[in-house]
């Protein structure tokens, strides 16, 4: 039954929208993801100034400037590191990280492993379109082996990377997959990811209209809600993710690891430490 909330919501999705207009191609899934971000933040009722969105380089990484939150559009592949420093220094903030399959899994691959292992309370959203868009369509770690491109004529012949399996093995505490075309569904996943303490990883299948027009209709038909409910058992999750068809949508794993948050022990003036040097 549709009910009316007793009070007006504190924030509307539009409160998280900036005046900067996206440069993404019309038809790109990232437009949908941007809306999902805004809806999730409205659902979480977070004041925009309490939210920071950090990104690297690539189409997906343009997202921070399109929001009315604090943002950091850094260098290629290092968004998780930058966000980790920010969250450790400012645990009061809600920190989301936006990335793509090239930025996040290729040049930034090592940081993904260690962000999962460290389990800082971050939400990592990877818009996966299995291609490099901003450099004109080179294969990424998730590109199919036979996808023909100028830099890899006839395809790479390499098995695609399974980011969710790697995230689980590395210690991520929350693992989900969404499809950009389902704006409301992605918003729910992002909100859940933010609510879950520790490192949350959401892979969003976000079609590339320009270099992967095949995804446009194909993915819409392929995605399906995960057939089994989420698990907190890493062994079950591992089996499930290993046998996953790549199009299961929903929360796939939610663990119980405590987030890493080093904290100051005292607030002494530095001069108090000088005794250590004094003879």
């Amino acid at each position: 039954m549709n009910m009316i909330p007793a009070t007006a919501p504190a924030f509307k999705p539009a409160d998280y929208k900036s005046s900067v207009k996206p440069v993404w191609c019309p038809g790109c899934g990232d437009h949908s993801v941007l809306l999902s971000f805004q809806r999730a933040l409205a659902e979480l009722a977070l004041p925009p100034e309490q939210v920071a969105i950090v990104s690297g380089i690539g189409c997906s990484s343009r997202i921070p400037a399109y929001t009315n939150c604090y943002g950091f559009h850094g260098v290629h592949g290092r968004s998780l590191a930058l966000a980790s420093g920010l969250k450790v220094a400012r645990p009061d903030l809600t920190v989301l990280v936006a990335s793509g399959d090239g930025d996040g899994f290729s040049i930034g691959g090592n940081h993904l492993l260690h962000a999962c292992r460290r389990n800082i309370d971050l939400t990592y959203i990877v818009m996966d379109n299995r291609i490099y868009g901003m450099t004109k369509g080179q294969p990424s770690p998730t590109t199919e082996p036979d996808w023909d491109t100028a830099i890899s004529p006839g395809g790479t012949g390499l098995s695609p990377f399974h980011p969710l399996v790697i995230a689980l093995a590395s210690g991520a505490n929350f693992i989900a997959r969404g499809f950009a075309g389902n704006i409301g569904g992605c918003a729910k996943l992002i909100a859940e990811a933010v609510r879950t303490p520790g490192f949350s990883f959401v892979q969003i299948l976000s079609p590339c209209v320009t270099f992967r027009p095949d995804q446009q209709r194909g993915w819409k038909d392929l995605v399906h809600p995960a057939a089994v409910p989420e698990t907190d058992d890493p062994a079950r999750a591992a089996r499930r993710l290993m046998t996953d068809d790549g199009f299961n949508i929903g929360v796939l794993y939610r663990g119980k690891r405590e987030p890493y948050q080093p904290a100051p022990k005292a607030y002494l003036a530095p001069s108090h430490l000088e005794a250590e040097f004094a003879l």
């Binding site: 930058l82 920010l86 940081h111 002494l268």
Partner: peptide
Amino acid sequence: ALPQCGGVLVQAEDELASINMIIGASFGGA
């Protein structure tokens, strides 16, 4: 020393991470 004086230290996975971590923390005001 740092945690005694209101700060924290993180051992990063590499120097690429350590420099980006401090950029993030400084962006946050530290």
